[in-house]
Design a protein around this nucleic acid. Sequence first.
DNA 1: GAATTTCCATTCTTTTTGGTTATCGATCGA
DNA 2: TCGATCGATAACCAAAAAGAATGGAAATTC
Lengths: 301, 301
Amino acid sequence: MEIRLLRSFTVLARYLNYGEAAQALGVSQPALSKQIQLLEADLGGVLFHRGRHGAELTPLGRFMHGQAQKLVADADQLQQSGRRMAAGRIGRLTLGFGLSTQEVAPRLLSLFRERYPDVELTLEDMPSAVQLNLLRAGELDIGFVRLPVSHEFDWIAVVDDQLALALPVEASWARGKAGLTAMHDAPFVQLAHHRGAGLVDQAMRYCAARQFTPHVIQRAGDIQTVMSLVAAGIGAAIVPLTAQRIAGPGVRLIPLTGRGAHWQVGAAWLAGNDSPLIQNFVALTREHSVRDPAPAPTVTA
Amino acid sequence: MEIRLLRSFTVLARYLNYGEAAQALGVSQPALSKQIQLLEADLGGVLFHRGRHGAELTPLGRFMHGQAQKLVADADQLQQSGRRMAAGRIGRLTLGFGLSTQEVAPRLLSLFRERYPDVELTLEDMPSAVQLNLLRAGELDIGFVRLPVSHEFDWIAVVDDQLALALPVEASWARGKAGLTAMHDAPFVQLAHHRGAGLVDQAMRYCAARQFTPHVIQRAGDIQTVMSLVAAGIGAAIVPLTAQRIAGPGVRLIPLTGRGAHWQVGAAWLAGNDSPLIQNFVALTREHSVRDPAPAPTVTA
DNA sequence: GAATTTCCATTCTTTTTGGTTATCGATCGA
DNA sequence: TCGATCGATAACCAAAAAGAATGGAAATTC
């Protein structure tokens, strides 16, 4: 009861003529003849009355025809589904995004959606550290995280980012200032450590290496709030330069330079996970990743 | 995507060990190895992670496992149904019975039901002539009809029957009479011609051959009524000897003998119709047919 | 840490299967 | 009666599938 035999049978049942059916199947007439004979031998009954005017289905043949059609269709369907899944054109993909990728995310996602419309995407916004944990737990397929990452993960770089000093445009104490060194007396707003450990740590290291300790007067739970506080003149802040995107007109961003100011954000996934979904997403990401650092911002808007 | 490959796959997916699965499948381990590789090549993705502890399903493998199990089960189911149908162990059979087979019918039917419980039987009670027409029209599979039948039909003999004179036990005019010759003045009840042409014609021929013309004073639509009328003393009747079965105590049956008194009833079907259902029924009928004439009835009860 | 065991993959050979061409036999029409 | 059509059969061939033996990696044992 191989699919091949059933398929031949269904075609013959449609044509009711060995020659034509064989041609449609791409085999010779004797081959089809034998296939049908095999099926009949397997069942122990005849499927066609062979007459002058071609073949005619017996009652058994009629019964088998209906069933065989279903089975063949199911088999074809299964093959197609399997191939699509193997090719990563179907399935579910869970992605983690963080602060630094809020710029590239929409573009990547729409591109992916366009090319793989049958892949179900799940997005979650969370800091790098959380993403890495979820990746380890298998609850996340790909995370957009700060590089480098431990060798548990494979990754590709996606965007360059860099620290920037955010200053209120209006505040008197900030007027005319243009660098970290001028901020010794300035009040600072800082992102809560648990909401962005990577960024906060890097900023603190950067400052420490320059014998500067920001006078933190307030912490905020997310970067938008930080920017708002800066815009309101509450204080300065050290933020990713890519936060430019969410900086209002009341905030001036001054890129910080030198050792420790830059880092990369990459797409990371569990090492060795060769799921085609992941590979497809990564391939597309590689194609469209911002290879150059964010287009050298002209400091302020 | 042959069933063979899918079956091997499902078995391996259950054992998760090539050696055991191969054994269960009755093939060598390398053979199974190659089968899985074929499937994987066909799909374009791996189905198992091969590790130290045997094999482990990939996501693709898990998906395919569920689907393949269904497909294989469907295929097996189809094969079984097909075989059962080819063997005539499943299907629908329409039978026609007439007067003369009301005796054997119940036994045959219960035997057939017992041996082929999944064959749906349809019974219809009608005279031979009607049965033959329905057989020709394909609306009846087997008819129990008076023999002989035209060569359009194949048949086997089932029961012998013979004409009998039915006399009322009580009626004065019938008392002491024991033969047709003594009935010249007797009133006769006769079956309506359209309800049993074969019997009526045969009875008339039998009488005519003996220069006897029954004085028919009443006709009845079915043989039970005929018997009742006889029992009521309305008249005599010529009936099949097998009608003994439905004769009440008020009726005396006297077998008629000589040329033209006997006939056979057989199971008939369209010539060349080798439907296994028919063949099975006929085979069973042949096994259990009453080969001897109805056990020489001792005339009266 | 070397030997052993366990598993799956590979190689090579044999067998089986599926297919092709050529041909036959039967049946129906002209 | 002669073709024409249609399926079955025969003979042969190539490809596929299976088996036996072997290899190689990884874990386990002593």
